[in-house]
Computed example of a mutant assay.
Amino acid sequence: MSDTPSPSVTPPPLTVAASLVALQGLGLVGVAIVQVAELDDDRRALGLSNAGFYGAYGVLLLVAAWGLWRCSGWSRGPALLTQLIWLGLAWTVREHVVAAVALAVLALVVLAGILHPDSIESLNSEDQASP
């Protein structure tokens, strides 16, 4: 009996990371909805382009979260890149301490979950198993 987890079982750290990435995606989709709901006639193009960006990015994160939960190696890239962006955003809003700490902690927890040895093994085993 081996100690290595089966590739079909998502390790707990990766499950936590996938859940938080899904929350980030839902948050961005929520921002897109608010952008559309609060469209200003004078700045309609800007509002729609912002809503489109946040909506598309949110959907990408939701798909990446699903991929992480299924241990698909391709989903690691978008999730890691997003966390680095959120760490930069936390630094940018550092004068708003609560928001900065929340963004940074969220990003660091996701990074820890994705970079955990069990998560790396699970994501890599899926990559090696695919033809």
Rank of each mutant, 00 (worst) to 15 (best):
A51L: 04
A64V: 04
E126M: 14
L62P: 02
R70L: 08
S75F: 05
L81H: 01
V97M: 05
T4N: 13
A65R: 09
W69Y: 08
V105T: 06
V21H: 01
L39C: 09
S119I: 01
T92F: 14
S19T: 10
S6F: 02
N124I: 07
Q24T: 10
E121C: 06
A104F: 07
D127C: 12
W66H: 06
R94N: 10
L61Y: 07
E126S: 15
V93A: 01
E121S: 15
L81K: 06
A22P: 08
L68D: 01
P78A: 05
L87S: 05
S130Q: 10
L81I: 15
R44E: 09
D42I: 10
A18N: 11
I85G: 00
R70K: 14
A104I: 07
G113Q: 11
A102I: 10
Q24H: 10
G73T: 05
T4G: 04
G30T: 10
G77H: 07
A79E: 02
E126A: 15
L81T: 15
D118S: 14
M1N: 04
S125K: 10
L62M: 10
L39N: 13
L123I: 10
P7R: 00
V63F: 15
A17G: 02
L103K: 00
G55H: 02
V97L: 12
S19P: 00
A45V: 14
L80I: 07
A37H: 09
T82K: 01
T10N: 11
V101C: 13
L46Y: 11
A90S: 14
A129D: 09
A104N: 04
T15G: 15
P78Q: 03
S2M: 05
R43H: 09
A104Q: 11
R76C: 01
A18G: 12
W86Y: 15
N124C: 09
A64Q: 06
L46R: 04
L106M: 10
V59R: 11
L84P: 00
G58V: 02
V34F: 02
V109M: 06
V59S: 07
V9Q: 13
A107I: 08
